[in-house]
């Protein structure tokens, strides 16, 4: 019974990080409607920002984290303003935006590699520094628990904001139909800018969490993003709670798969799940 508990805990931990990724992704995708490859890189950049402040400059932990989240948000905001907005104004197709975002991903990865080298780095300060909790025979560390709680808090906050605030309603309106939203008087340009800031900031949290949990390298942004995509589709694109549900489901399936089959098929399993959902339930488990 021990193993099953541990597998379940493993899934919780992985799911928490995927949740953060998908929360940001869903937000960005529902308003801008294109597949933004740069998002993955911005998330990792957030993690590296914390590396810079916390480890290289020696600032205090929580200040570094807040700075890191903020920087990820600003980075996303600027990129949206400088690159994606002009393209959308010119009615560029989503394929073009995709390629532009590929350019963004490539540039950010290269910059991170130049500034921080390609070597693998963790944000934590050595092994065994974190307290471990024993739960029914399985183990989870303090850091992992914090990540889990953070993911749930962000999900709740975002859900509430989107449902009950004016801002949230405006975002939903834009997600439904941008043109109509602007006719009704919503300044969609400004809104999208803010959305990109928030979405990228959440992505930054995912990057920071990854930095603490499994470590950072400049090139891991793309696979992080792809996991977020799967979670979004499985759970329901555009639905905040759906995304998180999808994230945990994905984590459970991956870990179950690793347990029952061979570890090496982990990627294939995740993407088979994606294809299955696309075929049979493309709107996801919790539709908008």
């Amino acid at each position: 019974m021990d193993i099953a508990i541990q597998i379940a805990l493993n899934a919780l931990i992985a799911g928490a990080i995927y949740s953060l990724v998908v929360l940001g992704f869903n937000l960005l995708y529902s308003t801008s409607r294109f597949f933004d490859l740069g998002y993955g890189a911005i998330a990792i950049a957030g993690g590296y920002a914390v590396l810079y402040f916390y480890k290289l400059l020696g600032l205090e932990l929580w200040s570094s984290i807040i700075l890191g989240i903020f920087i990820a948000g600003i980075l996303g905001f600027c990129i949206e303003k400088i690159i994606y907005r002009p393209l959308r104004t010119r009615k560029a197709s989503s394929a073009v935006l995709l390629i532009a975002s590929l350019g963004v991903l490539t540039v950010i990865q290269a910059v991170l590699a130049i500034l921080f080298t390609s070597q693998f780095q963790t944000l934590g300060r050595g092994a065994g520094e974190s307290r471990t909790f024993e739960i029914f025979g399985g183990a989870i560390t303090q850091t992992q628990s914090i990540i889990l709680i953070t993911a749930l808090v962000v999900m709740t906050a975002l859900g509430l904001v989107l449902k009950y605030t004016l801002f949230g309603k405006a975002v939903k309106a834009i997600a439904d139909d941008e043109e109509v939203a602007s006719i009704v008087g919503i300044n969609s340009e400004r809104m999208i800018g803010i959305v990109f800031f928030i979405g990228s900031a959440i992505g930054g949290m995912a990057g920071i969490a990854t930095g603490f949990d499994t470590g950072l390298q400049p090139t891991i942004g793309l696979s992080l993003l792809l996991k977020g995509v799967i979670a979004a589709i499985v759970g329901g694109i555009g639905n905040v709670y759906g995304g998180v549900l999808g994230a945990f489901l994905l984590a459970i399936i991956e870990n179950l798969g690793a347990w029952q089959f061979s570890g090496e098929w982990k990627d294939a399993i995740a993407f088979i799940v994606l294809v299955v959902f696309l075929l049979f339930r493309p709107q996801g488990i919790l539709p908008k």
Partner: peptide
């Protein structure tokens, strides 16, 4: 034996399995 592809960073379930 359990294999993993190079981009994997989460080994927990594979390790759990080997531990068993």
């Amino acid at each position: 034996k359990e294999e993993f592809s190079s981009n994997v960073t989460d080994f927990r379930s594979v390790l759990t399995k080997l531990k068993a």
